[in-house]
Design a protein around this nucleic acid. Sequence first.
RNA 1: GGUCCCUUAGCUCAGUCCGGUUAGAGCGCUCGGUUCACAUCCGAGAGGUCACUGGUUCAAAUCCAGUAGGGACCACCA
Length: 979
Amino acid sequence: MAAEIPKQYDPAAAQTRWYAEWSDRGYFDAEPNADRPQHTIMIPLPNVTGALHMGHALNGTLQDLLTRWKRMQGFEALWMPGTDHAGIATQAVVERRMLEEEGLTRHDVGREALVERIWKWKDAYEQRILSQMKLIGASCDWRRTRFTLDEMCSRAVRRTFFRLFDDGLIYRGKRLVNWDSYLQTAVADDEVFYEEVQGGFWTFQYPVVGSDEMISFSTTRPETMLGDTAVCVHPSDERYSHLVGQSVHVPLVDREIPIIADALLAKMEMGTGAVKVTPAHDPNDYACGLRNDLPMINILNSDGTINGNGGAYAGLDRYEARKQVAKAMDDLGLSGGVEERAIDLAHSDRSKTPIEPYLSDQWFVKMDNLAQAAIDAVEDGRVTFYPNRYAKTYLDWLGEKRDWCVSRQLWWGHRIPIWYCRSCELADLEAAFGDREDVCWHPDQENGGWLVCAETDLVGDELGESHPLVQDEDVLDTWFSSALWPHSTLGWPESTESLDYFYPGSVLVTSRDIITLWVARMVLTGLYNMGDIPFSQVCVHPKILDGFGQTMSKSKGNGVDPMDLVDRYGADAVRFTIASFAGETQDIRLPVGYECPECGHVIPQELKHQQATPGGGEKPRIECGGCGKSWQYTSPWYDPDDGEPVARMVAERFETGRNFCNKFWNAARFAMLNLEGYEPGPLPVIELLAIEDRWVLSRLSRTAAQVTSYLDRYQFDQATRTLRDFVWNEFCDWYLEMVKPRLQSDAEETEARATAQRVLVGVLDSLLRLLAPTTPFITEELWERLAELAPSRGLPEPGPVTECVMRAAWLELPAEWVDDALEERFERLQEIIVAVRNVRSTYTIPRSTRLSLSVRCGPDVAEDFEAVSGQFLNLSNTELTAVGPEVSQAAGAASFALGGADGYIDLEGVVDRDAERAKHTKELEKLTGMIAGHEKKLANENFVSKAPVEVVDGVRATLAGLREQLERVNDILGQLDAG
RNA sequence: GGUCCCUUAGCUCAGUCCGGUUAGAGCGCUCGGUUCACAUCCGAGAGGUCACUGGUUCAAAUCCAGUAGGGACCACCA
């Protein structure tokens, strides 16, 4: 029974219970259904590298909100879940742990064993990630959960690669890549970060052949001299023009190399104006090498040691070689010294070790036509971005049409389905594979023989023992498989019912940093494989920053665990707050603090708290500004010691959501405590309803329409704000207060009570529906309780309701319920009530003291006030004693002037005349100023002639109102002086 | 270097696209409240040269240009 409704909502219990309930009933599942339109969202697949963070919580909340909303609107709504194998990241994490815990490298354990270990890691983290999503209420169709390395996704990867290869869109090329010699893999440009390190800046000389002259140049990497193939100067540099075309001698490797002129590489004003050229180990030199047809000498092994081309230095680590090369040059008298410098050095984001530019064999996808198709899709509006400006990011990036390097020197990932056959002839291939559609081949331009691509693994001896087939060692870029996500998860390349029904999807919800890497590539592969876009809208949401405006990241130590927040504030509160963050422009600052375990004081986080690490010694502590004691605290860098009290992280912004949930819970509780005898039935015609009923229905109708329209445009912040304002400031603060007398009236007023109950139940039911997508647990809990008291309900007509609010229909109310004129009348009533409360507050008159109010106003307004005189008593314990044009101020009254009415409250003996006079004088000054402003405006001929008529009329009307108000204030002051 | 975003109350943010009331909210702050839904609450209040400088306009927080500060993405960094 309703009386048992607790005063506080218990999030944990509701979350556990309802999540299981929905799931058991199959409410999350989506199936092709010809009777309904589909709505499809593909999750931006989290990496299996670790647990979810705030960004995921935001991203997930928005997708869940949309999915639940669309379900209620009658769509067959699919939210497709899954995770990404995240090649480099995951392999790096597992390798690092293996090294730390067992001292083993991947070469010690071998490919198979390493991959097996990574699978175990994946299983553990995938579970963790999925269960975290469930804790925030994610209503994914879990039966369809996919992983980029699973059977279904792998098949799509194979087919795509095969098609691209067959179409001649995949080629093998030498490229200078960012080489991570620790992980021994190429690293994408976007996986590189720059960090200043101290290093040397050497100056050396090369002797010009057949002359006494020397050419000086500088370098930060002396060891690359071993691979120099030219010295370059600017063509118009007169210092060197006589030398161009001659050669210099590279001493340590005994090589003669030309002196060339290249305006793009050499800059006269930099250093000596001459620069060494190492095409195999520097991006600019590489470009220069191509332009000038220079040899490219690779001097490095993949582990960062010097290779055979380094002569005497072969086998040395590059840093050791650097020292020795510098010393050798010095010994030869060819060194001009070294200076210490801070050097901005490229580092691998994954291993945090320095990057070497390295010439290696890679696989590429030609982007030309593929990119153009993806550009067209956005330019012609088949795919639209919210907010629209992000289309530019997408178009600019695709416009470069840079070929996509898809190979990675890793073991964790989709192995490249290419087999090399060095020795066989075309006839051998035709004999073995001529009847197979899943095998194709192109000549290997570079090394001779053939490149064979196959959709299913070749065993190696299919061409006979004399022609072994050897598979490429590398795996594909992670983004290759995630690019296929929207169609691979639905079964492509099979033609499945799901694919047919759910593709193309509806909206992709993501943050801006992967618009290029992921969004663009999904569009591109969707068009290539499916001949259609993967989704028609892209919703780009903000990023969550810490309290100092920095992006959150593990390395900064400023992450916030969303699960801590769910524990503390409840999933609904977290969802509601997060949704209220998600606007179109700003990133979100999330200042956090640590709660003192003793006094409860919240200690604001400072930068030093993020960075403090134990470093093997004492664990860092935080000092409480309240009680002065210090504590260990929540930190990514250490686990607090057993038994130590911990200052736990709190984020006060989430109290907004928690307080809202509590408020709504209690509003519903109040409603349900007052439903005794509720009978469903149609409402009287709207004109016969009480003013507060008409008003609340007008406001509700407006609110519902606004929320729908905001969600349509992905303006989650506006939608939640609108809901909060209506629930708190209108439904609770005014409607519930006004309806109390009718609900609690005695027996002879059953009619009034019955109507009040019907409106109340209708509004509550409506709010449950409107809030269900955002705060699913609390609304479900209340929906169930309401069903016991009011099984038949709803607006505009009552009827039986669904078992769960999750399955209820989204709210749509008659537009004609919105009544501007009535809302305006109601506002006047509110103003008077506020003014009376103000007087009460000014004179600290207790609520229990009844006041007498007389109002001087026009006859039409008077009629309104008389009709609601009961509400003056109800809302402010004030009796409306006189109302109309003839009312005048009694002596010793507190008074106030509103637009259309003056109020007088008899306070003989209490009122402070000086205070009253001061208040009204201040008011008078303000009004005088405003009137002067408006008069000036109207006196300006330009304004009157050029501004639109309605604006001018508006100013005139306002001025008239202000003058009237001024007159009232003057009256009041006059009477104060007279009395 | 290119592109984009931000700068409004002590804090976190709306409002800017589409110029036109007295620029709003939440938190915090001050004052007052044990009203039978809610102290995670109720009532009242204080608090803002809308970053700066110019321009356009009858009119600028809003449009334009520039400056300063913060952030993101892309490119580059012998």
